[in-house]
């Protein structure tokens, strides 16, 4: 049997209305391995959020399926925690109440003290110790999103699904939270699927960046492997890394030009949506291409 990743997206398509309508996206195939941080990047309107909702089980695809752990998903599950774009905290509950609600949903038999102890651990993990009894309205945007992250992590899911979790935050808060997510995910070996349209966020966080073309009829163009090692990715000196600009330019070039004209790009080529190209633009920057090496050896002779 062929190797199957933890999450396998197989032939996904989604159209709104009847089958004569053009699909928002179609023929989407890719996978996310266990422990991998995967970013999906594309313009708004290409159906990124719909893909995430399908993965979360909140939306049904028109065609195709999502296989998780060798089983087709048929609805939401506690194994797949979602961090919503608008944090989606319940405003009548405190920070503790919001997280305890998730924890007691995960382990209904736990008593109150056990639920609270467990919740408190995750409140501390995201640095919100002391804010347990505050309501969401009393928290800043960054703190609310931290609660959202703590809630998702507290149920110890097999994977995290994040829908542009930092897009509503100011740059400073966003940076701090990105660092924290990076740290937490590295510590817990969490499998993450995240949607973003921020190129730098993708380079900082992701091991694998899935590029989606513009809709309607959006497709996955290719998968960029982030060859910068995890321990060399730091927000403050990311731009000094030798691979950074090569990867960044590749992503920006895709978003600015190729995402629009991808159909022309693949015309006459054998584009197979099931066997996507894995590109490593970062390696090209550090290892000079083979031709250049051949030329220098030629001159020496």
């Amino acid at each position: 049997m062929e190797h199957r990743p933890l999450i396998s997206i197989e032939g996904l398509a989604r159209r709104f209305g009847d089958s004569s309508q053009p699909a928002v996206f179609e023929d989407i195939w890719f996978g996310v391995d266990k422990g991998e941080f995967c970013c999906l990047i594309g313009h708004s309107g290409c159906g990124k959020t719909t893909i995430l909702n399908v993965l979360a089980g909140l939306d049904q695809p028109s065609e195709g399926a999502v296989i998780v752990d060798n089983r087709e998903i048929d609805g939401p599950s506690l194994d797949r925690a979602v961090i919503f774009q608008g944090h989606a905290l319940l405003p009548w509950l405190t920070v503790m109440g919001n997280i305890a609600f998730a924890v007691s949903s995960r382990w209904p038999k736990w008593d109150r003290t056990r639920v609270q102890d467990h919740s408190r651990r995750f409140i501390e993990l995201v640095g919100l110790k002391g804010a347990e009894n505050k309501r969401p309205a009393q928290l800043s945007g960054g703190m609310k999103q931290r609660v959202g992250i703590a809630r998702a992590l507290s149920i110890q899911p097999k994977m995290l699904l994040m829908d542009e979790p930092f897009s509503a935050l100011d740059a400073l808060t966003r940076g701090m939270l990105q660092d924290e997510v990076l740290r937490i995910c590295a510590d817990t070996q969490q499998t993450v699927f995240m949607i973003t349209h921020d190129v730098d966020e993708a380079i900082l966080l992701a091991d694998k960046i899935v590029l989606m073309t513009n809709g309607p009829g959006a497709r996955i163009a290719e998968i960029v492997v982030n060859t910068m090692p995890k321990n060399e990715r730091h927000r403050n000196d990311l731009h000094k890394h030798p691979q950074y600009y090569a990867i960044r330019n590749h992503l920006v070039e895709f978003l600015v030009n190729r995402s629009r004209a991808f159909d022309q790009e693949i015309a006459g080529q054998n584009y197979d949506p099931r066997r996507l190209k894995l590109v490593k633009p970062g390696l090209a920057a550090v290892n000079p291409p083979a031709e250049v090496v051949a030329l220098t050896t030629g001159r020496r002779q």
Binding site: G75, S77, L78, V82, F84, G86, A88, L90, F101, S105
Partner: peptide, 18 residues
């Protein structure tokens, strides 16, 4: 009721009565 709150309940597999 905001759809996102209901979605929170759905992703946490909360039953209809709860």
């Amino acid at each position: 009721v905001r759809k996102e709150w209901l979605n929170v309940a759905r992703t946490l597999e909360v039953g209809p009565f709860r």
